[in-house]
Nucleic acid binder design. Structure first.
Lengths: 196, 196
DNA sequence: ATTAAAAACTAATAACCGTTAGTTTTGTGG
DNA sequence: CCACAAAACTAACGGTTATTAGTTTTTAAT
C-alpha cells in the first residue's frame, strides 16, 4: 500500500493539494514548508515530487480551482431568467455553500493569491475583476428595474462581497450559528438592512 | 545627518515601523526580508538593529498600535449618551477613517497577525474577541430598544465587521469612489438595506 | 579640538528552505 | 516468480534568512 492515500475519485496529487490547502490556510503559504506538508501527508519531503511539480504549483491549483468554480456559477446565474433580487440571493447562498464545503481552498485563494507567479497571478486577478464587473451589472440592472434602492452600485457590490468574504471568520463560530440561520440572516441583512 | 529620517515627532524606530508596515502589506510578513526593509529605509540590514530589537518586534508594534486605537475608540463610543444607531454609525465611520489614515497598519494587523509570537498573539486575539463582544451588546441593545429589527445579533455583527474589513479592498478604487460617497452609501446599506 | 556616544558598515554564522540526484523498497502484471 | 514501474527513502546542494560580532564613520557635547 502506498503511503499517500487518494481520497475517493481523486488522484494522489489531489490528496496533496488538499493537505496543502489546509496547511497554507493555517500557516500561510510562505510560512508553510514542504517538509511540514510531507509530514502531514505521511511521507518524506522529496517523495512529494513524485506527484507534484513544485510548491508554487500547489498554490496555483488551489487558486485556479476556486476561481473557476465561482466564475462558472456566476455565469450560470446571470444567464437564468430571474429577477435581480433572486440572482443576487443565489450568489450569496453559493458563497456560503463554498465556504462551508471548501473552506481551506477558498480561504487560501482569498489570502495567499499574492504569492502566485506572474502568469497565474494576472489570470486570477482578471477573473476577480470580471466577477466584480458582472455583479456590478447585476446591481445596476436591479436599480434600473426599481428592485433596489437608488444607491451607489459599486459601493453595494463592495459591501456585499466584503461581507461574504468575511464568512471565513464565521467558521470559528460554526457551533453557535448554524449555516441555515446564518444564510437567512445575512442575506436578509444585506438586502433589507438592520434598521426597523 | 543620519540616514534614517524620523518623521515629525516620531523616533527613528517609528520610521522603520512605518516602512515595515508598507512592506509587510505589499509582500506579506514572511515574504518580507530585513534586507529589503533596510533598502527601502536607505541603510544596510544590520544597521536596523541599532534601533529595533527584531523583525518580530516590528509586527508586534504594528498590530498593537492598531488594536489599541480601535479598542480605545470603541470604549469611548460605548460610554457616550447616544442611541444604538448613532453609536453603530460612529463605529463604522471610525473604521473608514482608520482605513484611510493608517491603511498599511490596519491591513497588516488584519492579515499578518497569525505570525505574532505567542504572548502577543493571544493578547491580540483577546482584544478582537472583546471588541466583537461589545459590539454584540450594542446590537442587542438596539434590538431591545426597537431601533433594530429582530434579527440574529451575532450575524449582524459578523456582517458589519466583515463589510468594514473589506474596506481594504476599496483602496484600489479610491479614485473612482471618494471617501464621502463610500461612507454615506456603505453605512446606509448596512443600516437600511439594498431593497427598495 | 577632543571625546564619547550614536549609527553606520563589512563579514560571517547557523538555520532553514525548495529541490535534485541517486538508491532502495514496494506494488503489479505476465 | 520475475520483471518493470511506481513510489518511497537518504544525502546533499545552492540559496536565502534573521541576526551577531567587530569595526569604522558620523554626530554632538564640552
Amino acid at each position: 500500500m502506498s503511503k499517500i492515500k487518494a481520497a475517493g475519485n481523486g488522484t494522489k496529487k489531489d490528496a496533496i493539494v488538499t493537505n496543502a490547502a489546509k496547511l497554507f490556510r493555517t500557516k500561510g503559504y510562505r510560512a508553510s514548508s514542504m517538509r511540514e506538508l510531507a509530514d502531514k501527508t505521511g511521507v518524506e519531503a522529496p517523495s512529494l515530487y513524485n506527484h507534484i511539480g513544485s510548491k508554487a504549483e500547489l498554490l496555483q491549483a488551489i487558486c485556479l480551482k476556486v476561481g473557476e468554480r465561482f466564475t462558472l456559477h456566476l455565469n450560470e446565474v446571470i444567464a437564468a431568467e430571474k429577477t435581480a433580487t433572486e440572482k443576487l440571493k443565489e450568489l450569496m447562498l453559493f458563497h456560503i455553500t463554498m465556504m462551508t464545503n471548501f473552506f481551506d481552498e477558498v480561504y487560501v485563494a482569498n489570502h495567499e493569491w499574492k504569492h502566485l507567479e506572474e502568469q497565474h497571478l494576472s489570470h486570477f486577478l482578471k477573473q476577480r475583476r470580471d466577477y466584480e464587473a458582472k455583479m456590478l451589472q447585476l446591481v445596476e440592472e436591479g436599480i434600473e428595474k426599481k428592485e433596489f434602492k437608488n444607491i451607489h452600485p459599486q459601493v453595494a457590490v463592495l459591501t456585499i462581497l466584503a461581507a461574504l468574504r468575511g464568512l471565513e471568520f464565521w467558521q470559528q463560530h460554526k457551533k453557535d450559528i448554524p449555516a441555515a440561520v446564518l444564510e437567512t440572516n445575512m442575506v436578509n441583512h444585506l438586502l433589507n438592512g438592520l434598521i426597523l
